[in-house]
Simulated assay, not measured.
Amino acid sequence: MAQMELIENYLSAWKRLDSSLLNQVLHDKVLYESQFVFEVLLGKSAVTNYLKQKFIAIKRENIPVLAEYATYIDNPCMVLTQFFIDDGMSGDDPNLIKEGITKSGFEYSYRESVILFGFKDEKISRINLCVIPGPSETKKIDNIDLRNEKIRQLENSI
């Protein structure tokens, strides 16, 4: 598979919250690192199990997530936006939390991160979820801004 197609499949897994879609795109020895997770995950099984649990939590809490295809220094990447109600208990660095308010006065919070990829043997071999580089340093490929729709979904779920 081409790199773009691999990332599109990874995006689909996030958009559908379905970790089974990752089996065909992840290298057996994939490495997953995140600036939000203290442990490095190694291997397809560890990464898919971690994301499966994350997707289950997102579904259970009915948390809107926005996954967008982008480039960083001409390399394909993904921008991930996770919306939530900020109760001050998340443990996140307050500098990483962004807030907004809709026209109807609904307050929301969200955190954006960039997912950088490495490739080997026509599979994703490395996944780095980070805030540096940040989304403002990427160029989004999708011209459709779904953030407003996700905010409406969050508004309706409360």
Rank of each mutant, 00 (worst) to 15 (best):
L154V: 05
A46Y: 13
D86S: 10
P133A: 11
K139H: 10
E99H: 15
S125M: 04
Q82E: 15
E61R: 15
M78K: 05
E107I: 09
N128W: 08
D74A: 03
D93G: 09
H27W: 08
T102Y: 08
L116S: 04
L21M: 05
R111D: 07
R16W: 09
D86E: 12
V30S: 03
L21E: 01
W14Q: 08
F55D: 13
K52Q: 15
I158K: 08
I101D: 10
D92C: 11
L66P: 03
A13P: 03
L146P: 02
R126N: 09
Y72W: 13
V30C: 03
D18T: 07
D86I: 09
D92Q: 12
D145P: 05
Q153N: 04
E61T: 14
C77W: 02
F38M: 05
K15H: 10
S34D: 01
E107M: 03
F117E: 13
Y50F: 15
M78V: 05
V47Q: 02
G134Q: 09
V47T: 06
N9I: 03
A57F: 11
E68R: 15
N128F: 06
K59A: 12
E112N: 08
T81F: 08
V131N: 03
S20H: 01
E61L: 15
K150N: 13
D145M: 06
S20Y: 01
P64K: 14
I127K: 07
K54H: 11
N23C: 05
I63D: 12
L80R: 08
K54S: 15
T48Y: 00
S109I: 09
K103P: 08
V30N: 01
N156P: 07
L17Y: 12
E61Y: 11
L42W: 07
E8Y: 02
Q3W: 03
L154C: 06
E137G: 00
Q3F: 05
C130H: 01
E68I: 14
I127E: 04
Y108A: 06
I144Q: 02
Y110T: 10
F84C: 10
I97G: 07
Y69A: 06
L129G: 00
R16I: 00
K59N: 15
D74S: 10
V40W: 02
E8K: 04
L42A: 11
L146N: 07
H27G: 08
N9G: 04
R147M: 14
I97L: 04
R16S: 14
N95E: 14
N156W: 12
E33F: 00
Q3I: 06
D142E: 07
I132P: 00
G91L: 03
K29T: 03
V25L: 07
I58G: 05
S113V: 02
Y50D: 11
P94I: 14
L22T: 01
K120F: 06
D28C: 10
N75L: 01
N49D: 09
I101N: 14
Y108K: 09
R126M: 04
M78I: 01
Y110W: 07
L11C: 09
I144N: 02
G43W: 09
K150S: 12
L96Q: 13
P94W: 14
I63Q: 15
L66D: 10
I124M: 06
K29A: 08
E33V: 13
I63Y: 14
S90A: 11
L42S: 13
F38Q: 08
D93T: 03
A57W: 11
Q35K: 05
K98I: 00
E149M: 14
N49M: 06
K139Q: 13
V25A: 06
G91W: 08
P135R: 10
L96T: 12
V131K: 04
